[in-house]
Amino acid sequence: MGRDRPSLTPYIYLSPVIVLSGIFVYWPLIYTFYLALVKWNLIAARRPFVGLDNFHGVFTSSLFADATWNTFLYIFGAIPLKVLLPLAVAVCVWMCAPRMAGIYKTMIFLPVLASFAAVAVIWLWLLNPIAGYFNILLHKVGLAMPNLLFDTRYALATVLGVSAWKILGFNTLLYLAGLTAINRDYAEAMRIDGANDRQIFRYLIWPLLTPTTMFVLITTVIFSVQQVFTPIDMMTKGGPSNATTNLFYMVYQLAFQTFNIGHGAAATVTLFGLLMTITVVKFRLLDRFVKYADR
């Protein structure tokens, strides 16, 4: 390695990635905290320091209450739809003969490839209460399509459902990777000892899949805040009467539609706090469950 001048070369090779991450990831993250303390509309020359006023303004708005409540609804709804359902689907795919399993896997994976913008447009068409495809089918049997996206009772569930449809294939694939890693000899051994199918699932597959399940649970929870942005923006714009907005969409509206940068930044800091809390809980849980799996 003599000719390489190892003292400097590695730093030169690393510098683009480090410098770019510093400028475009770390610096904005810090700068957000500053912006949360000033009043600014993107245009004014002065940015007066207002302390915690922005936080006060955000916390007392009814939009914030709705957005926070909905964020939790999206997270709790994600657990059955985006964590447990893909688990069941993955186990079913795994039980099928490899050739059929491959075909199922490919079909289930297709919505992951389609862009979420396109997926939103497609579901807008399917669900449209007048010209939508489902309405045309229902009309044939004398029923009418409810206006899912403009009814405060169904709108959030519909956005959640579409986002679950979009991500199902991805999470199924993660579980399948976990299932493939299970040594099938164990199942054979249990079978020889007289275990039935139910026992194999209960005492072999479920415990060995726990780390994967925890992993899917945590990534899904963190990403469900971001993942629903596209369907919210394309399908409902947060409405009707804030029924589908969440904290991330609220930040977007504050900063880029009303140009209240201070409020937008304060909401971002709040979101940061929420995500940090989830991350800490995540590492605690992962610690416990990974140890459990090693035993």
């Binding site: 475009f24 990831v25 610096w27 904005p28 993250l29 700068y31 957000t32 912006l35 963190i222 805040v225 971001q226 942005f229 991330f248 930040v251 977007y252 900063a255 940068i261 937008g264 930044a265 971002t268 979101l271 940061f272 995500l275």
Partner: peptide, 9 residues
């Protein structure tokens, strides 16, 4: 660090 936290700056 998710994009959502750096977008305003």
């Amino acid at each position: 660090i998710p994009h959502s936290l750096t977008m305003v700056p």
